[in-house]
Amino acid sequence: QVARDHGATPVLVTPVARLLYDFGSLLDTHARYTLAMQQLATREHVALIDLNDRSMRWIRALGEQGARPYFLFVPEQHKADGTHFSVAGANAVACLVLREAVQVLPALQPALVRDIDCDVMGVGQGGDPARASQVVHEDTLARTQSGPHGGGGPTTAYPFFADAQGLPFVLRKRVLHKGAGIGLHPQHKDEIYYIVSGQGSYVLDGKQHDVRAGHALLTRKGSSHALQQVGEEDLVVLLAYPRN
């Protein structure tokens, strides 16, 4: 009531969860505190942010091992302390609090300058097995090919997620070894090249560009382009374009 008398809006926040697992299950160490605060919020008609619930969902979604970098590391014990957050953990928990705060205090929304897309309500439940998320390493994908579109020379292609069902875009890495190139061709869909390393000569609509690591090359539908490796170092390129 004191806060309200001074024109403030009280908001209760339940305790943040600890990184404490037992036999593979995350322990709810604040259950009684949470219940007491929920009862108080109901009795006094005060807004409540259930950070205990949100942070437990967040930790479960990360997994016991994945959550450790978000907590302070204790060198003497060779483990995370489970209570105090690293900078990354503090930022993540702050995002959880803010996401809930804008629900109970809508006036905050116009002041936001960054996204708060840190919802964990449904995280970790998985989806359609036929459209499963994946982690792959390029070592399992390497394909030796000549330069596409008549470019010639030796290249190594890495077709990431080529068999993923329903994926609307293509992501590919191509290494143009010495003398290799991607031949001149018309573009039938928007495409992006990103130069990871090496040097190349890029021709876009008849204009030549010297490109190197850090260059991003956007070719729009209707343009034509070609890329040639230059120098002694392999030219490594990431390519992205719509699948259809």
Rank of each mutant, 00 (worst) to 15 (best):
R143H: 01
V113K: 15
I192N: 01
F160P: 02
P186S: 11
P168G: 09
D115I: 07
A180V: 02
H177T: 08
G181V: 07
R174W: 10
V170Y: 02
Y193R: 04
R131V: 05
G122A: 12
Q165L: 13
Q125V: 08
R114W: 14
Y193P: 11
L141M: 04
L171H: 12
A132N: 03
A162D: 08
G153L: 01
D117A: 13
P154I: 09
R131K: 10
E138R: 12
K178Y: 03
E138I: 00
V123C: 12
S133V: 01
D115R: 11
A157H: 02
T144Q: 12
A132Y: 01
G181W: 01
G127H: 12
T155L: 06
E138P: 00
G124D: 08
F160G: 01
L171S: 14
T155E: 06
T140C: 08
D115M: 07
V175K: 11
F161A: 04
Q145D: 10
G150S: 02
I182A: 03
G147V: 07
G183E: 05
C118S: 06
Y158P: 02
R131G: 06
G126F: 03
D139I: 12
M121H: 10
Y158H: 10
P159E: 04
V136E: 06
H177Y: 01
Y158D: 05
F161K: 02
A164C: 05
F169G: 03
C118K: 03
T144E: 10
Y193A: 04
A142C: 03
G127Q: 06
S146H: 10
T155G: 07
P159Q: 11
P168S: 09
T155R: 00
K189S: 15
V123E: 14
D139Y: 07
V113I: 15
P129M: 00
A162Y: 02
P186N: 13
Q125S: 00
H188E: 13
D115H: 11
L184Q: 14
D117Q: 08
P154E: 13
H137Q: 10
D115P: 14
A142L: 00
K189M: 15
H188W: 00
E191H: 04
Q165E: 14
I182Y: 07
H137P: 00
I182N: 08
A157Q: 11
G127C: 05
K178H: 15
E138G: 13
R174D: 10
C118Y: 09
I182E: 09
P148E: 01
G181S: 15
A132S: 08
L184F: 12
I192H: 03
Q134E: 13
Q134K: 10
I192Q: 03
R174L: 14
G124Y: 11
G181K: 05
V136C: 07
E191S: 02
V135F: 07
E138V: 05
K173I: 06
